[in-house]
């Protein structure tokens, strides 16, 4: 007896997006698939890509992170080299949280200088994250766009700042990460707004906001699944690669609290928390993952199959 499998066939295809690399580096291309993640059906020309965050500013690292990245985390250039080298990150997410008034208070020009240094220290593809303070970011993104000597992605363009960020990105040939708070309609709206500005669609990634395991992960899981299914079903504004930043996993008490011995060794538990968050994102359809712990890069790459 032969069994016929009911395999859904989708009319749409996720747009291919490339994060460019510097001279001698390897660009990262994601997207291009016309089927659901992790399955052998359809075409998946590119595997999901796992990258790492390069932090700036004052850091209060949980013990498991301090042990792994502590010696480098205070030095963005050393950290970037380590991530893209020994730790196997395919791209870097340079977070300029250090420019937040409460996060280290680097000036905008200092932030731009860090960008310049990191970009010349490694040819890896880079996404540059803002600091989260609206006013600072309004100055930071244009400065960074100008300072970056080669094409990068700017994270984040949201409803309020998208003209500014997209404008800066357009002027210097960068891409943008379109952010929305766990909401499929807003994710779509962001892409329509960017299209209205004439922003090239193949330079846009969707960041749906990633809740950490136990702290909103299920909302992200479902929004990512819905965005992906909508994109594959033909909604072009949602047929884009999805980026999940796993940083929220480290906000969970379970990931960092050493006092609960019944929860197991916190040195193992923290990385597991990040890994599990990332595995759920991959299962839902994420194309790019940003990790904080080096072991997550290797572990998640093990499930980032085509």
């Amino acid at each position: 007896m032969s069994v016929t499998l009911p395999i859904p066939v989708f009319p749409g295809r996720i747009l291919e997006v490339t994060l460019p690399a510097g001279p001698g580096g390897t660009p990262v291309t994601v997207g291009g698939q016309n089927a659901l993640p992790l399955l052998p059906e359809g075409e998946h020309p590119n595997a999901p890509a796992v990258g790492m965050e390069v932090p700036t500013g004052t850091l209060e690292l949980p013990a498991a992170l301090a042990a792994a990245i502590g010696p480098f985390a205070g030095d963005p250039v050393a950290m970037a080299r380590k991530c893209a080298g020994d730790w196997g990150a395919r791209f870097l997410f340079l977070s300029l949280a250090g420019c937040h008034p409460d996060g280290g208070g680097l000036s905008v020009s200092e932030g731009a200088a860090v960008v310049r240094e990191v970009l010349s220290a490694t040819p890896a593809p880079v996404i540059i994250g803002g600091c989260g303070d609206e006013e600072v970011d309004a100055l930071l993104f244009p400065a960074v766009a100008e300072a970056a000597g080669r094409p990068v992605f700017l994270s984040y363009a949201e409803e309020k700042n998208h003209r500014l960020v997209a404008g800066a990105a357009l002027a210097y040939g960068h891409g943008v990460v379109a952010w929305s708070p766990i909401d499929i309609n807003m994710a779509k709206q962001m892409n329509l707004l960017l299209a209205d500005l004439g922003f090239p669609p193949d330079r846009v990634l969707i960041d749906p906001l990633t809740g950490g395991l136990g702290y909103g992960m299920e909302y992200t899981f479902t929004i990512v699944e819905r965005i992906r299914i909508a994109g594959l079903s033909g909604d072009a504004a949602l047929a884009r690669p999805i980026l999940c930043h796993l940083g929220d996993a480290w906000k969970a008490r379970e990931a960092t609290d050493a006092s609960e011995e019944a929860w197991g060794d916190v040195g193992a538990r923290g990385p597991r928390w990040e890994e599990t968050t990332g595995l759920a994102c991959l299962g839902a359809g994420a194309d790019l993952l940003v990790c904080r712990h080096p072991s997550s890069v290797a572990r998640l790459a093990g499930a980032a199959w085509r």
């Binding site: 395991l213 992960m217 379970e254 929860w263 890994e275 839902a284």
Partner: peptide, 30 residues
């Protein structure tokens, strides 16, 4: 972890390490 997200009904594991089980059970709860 992937089978909790994708259609596993019953899983047998050899690990009894809470550092493994707590994240898996939390994922399932989510």
């Amino acid at each position: 972890a992937l089978l909790v997200a994708k259609y596993g009904s019953l899983l047998v594991l050899d690990s009894a390490d809470p550092a493994d089980l707590l994240p898996l059970l939390t994922l399932r709860q989510n």
